[in-house]
Simulated scan of single mutants.
Amino acid sequence: MKISPQHFPPEVKKPQAADSPKVKNQSAQAPTENVSGAMKAEAGRQRMLSWFARVGISPAMQSSDPKKQKHALERRKHILETQKASNLQAVLNIALNVTINEQTSDNLDPDWFFAFSSMAEEIYSPPMQELWGKIFAVEVARPGSFSLRTLQLLKTLTHRDAKVFNKAVNIASRRNNDAVPRILVGYHRRKGLFSLFRKPVPEQINLSTVGLSYPDLLSLQEMKLIYASEIESGEYAEGQEVSWRCNNDLMTLTCKSSGVALVYYKFTSVGSELYKLVPKSQNEAYLNQLKLVLNEVFNIR
């Protein structure tokens, strides 16, 4: 008897049609996932090898032969010394291209220079090398501009730290003839009887809404670039004027009533020295919010 398709029961035929593609898909997918995982693992391994190669370390150095070990160590020392020399060369090249208008005839302190060079040779990030090059150019033109304490702190900063500091610089203001920058955040008004009937207004801006988050502030405080707590100015008298410059924006504040003090974060001496070197750009969102808050107690022009 010839067997034809209609001799198979429907319930037997359907599972074969439905199940076979699933089995194929699962068997085809597993090798793909394994290959992808292996490729990622190998890529990570190559990155590790690449970084350690920069300091002269590789798995091939593991040898029981004393001559090979000595050769590997000498090669590593050569790589490190070459890299340090390359770092100093990069700093020098940057310094040579910095133009300083004001210069004095004072000589550079030899102790400062050799301390500078020993620290600068271990600066590997190009953005940080640029900062160190600018420092050297300014110090040669005006000896005494940067203390060794500032250099020691700067050596611990990473490129990421510098980017956080740049955020603070972009919203920092200075008064006329005052070299210390401050981040104005609002005001404090001495409470009086009539203040009970005033509509509540925000007395401070939220810095996180303009690019400087609370973790950023904590980081700047830990790095000793700004002081750890907010500071209040002295109270202003009614009609008293004070001018602040935030990058290219000059604000003249005239106090509407007495008993008002500005609230700000103050840069430390180290932060003030580094402030002079960091490129600045206007943060319009910060200025708009600050003026909106201060307008409650100051006339602004």
Results as ranks from 00 to 15, higher is better:
L154N: 04
L154H: 04
L154D: 07
L154C: 12
K155Q: 10
T156G: 03
T156V: 12
T156L: 14
L157G: 00
L157N: 04
T158Q: 10
T158V: 11
T158E: 10
R160N: 15
R160V: 12
R160E: 14
D161Q: 13
A162H: 12
A162Q: 14
V164P: 05
V164I: 15
F165V: 01
N166Q: 15
N166G: 14
K167H: 09
K167I: 06
A168N: 00
V169R: 01
V169S: 04
N170E: 01
I171M: 09
A172E: 00
A172D: 07
S173G: 14
S173L: 06
R174D: 01
R174S: 09
R175K: 14
N176Y: 08
N176G: 11
N176P: 03
N177P: 01
N177M: 10
D178Q: 14
A179R: 15
V180A: 05
V180W: 06
R182K: 15
R182F: 00
I183G: 07
I183R: 00
L184F: 05
V185F: 04
V185M: 02
V185Y: 09
V185E: 02
G186W: 00
G186T: 00
Y187C: 02
Y187L: 08
R189L: 13
R189V: 11
R189K: 11
R190I: 10
K191A: 11
K191Y: 13
K191F: 10
F194Y: 07
F194I: 08
F194R: 03
F194L: 13
S195G: 03
S195Q: 13
S195N: 09
L196V: 12
L196S: 10
F197P: 00
R198W: 12
P200M: 11
V201T: 15
V201Y: 06
P202I: 13
E203L: 05
E203I: 11
E203C: 14
Q204M: 09
Q204S: 06
Q204R: 13
I205N: 02
I205F: 08
N206L: 05
N206P: 03
N206W: 02
L207T: 08
L207N: 05
S208Y: 09
S208C: 08
S208E: 12
V210L: 02
G211R: 01
G211I: 06
L212M: 12
S213C: 07
Y214P: 03
Y214R: 06
P215M: 06
D216T: 07
L217Y: 08
L217T: 13
L218K: 14
S219V: 01
S219N: 08
S219E: 13
L220H: 06
Q221N: 02
M223A: 14
M223K: 15
K224P: 00
K224C: 10
L225V: 04
L225G: 00
I226H: 07
I226Q: 02
I226F: 05
I226M: 03
A228G: 14
A228M: 11
A228E: 12
S229I: 04
E230H: 07
E230F: 03
E230T: 10
I231K: 15
I231E: 12
E232L: 15
E232Y: 11
E232K: 11
E232G: 04
S233L: 02
S233I: 00
G234P: 02
E235Y: 12
E235G: 09
Y236R: 06
Y236E: 04
A237K: 15
A237M: 08
E238L: 04
E238F: 05
E238G: 00
G239F: 10
G239N: 09
Q240C: 07
Q240S: 11
